[in-house]
């Protein structure tokens, strides 16, 4: 299946892009995608604990099951105000 990944704030610098498309095995979960991203962009290993992840408009954990066409967002801790 295919999912789109969008990076926000300084995570765009870590990825070298603001948007990517990732191919995953059927039944893959968010954790599988994150491992693929860390393999492709090793800088994300350093921010493993502080990385926030959303699917669509909701925060999700690594065991969240992905669907074809999902839009995943990765970003650092938020700083509004």
């Amino acid at each position: 299946m295919t999912v789109s990944v969008r990076y926000w704030s300084w995570f765009k610098d870590l990825a070298g892009a603001d948007h990517e498309v990732h191919e995953l095995a059927p039944e893959a979960c968010l954790g599988d995608l994150l491992e693929q991203i860390r393999h492709q962009h090793p800088g994300f290993e350093q921010v493993r604990k502080s990385t926030l992840v959303a699917v669509g408009l909701e925060y999700q954990n690594a065991d969240h099951r992905l669907k074809n066409g999902d839009e995943v967002s990765l970003f650092p801790p938020v700083q509004g105000g």
């Binding site: 926000w8 704030s9 970003f75 938020v78 700083q79 509004g80 105000g81």
Partner: peptide, 14 residues
């Protein structure tokens, strides 16, 4: 509300 905004609302500053 402001504390929670700073925890969950995806806004960043540079």
């Amino acid at each position: 509300l402001i504390d929670e905004m700073k925890r969950v609302v995806p806004i960043w500053k540079k």
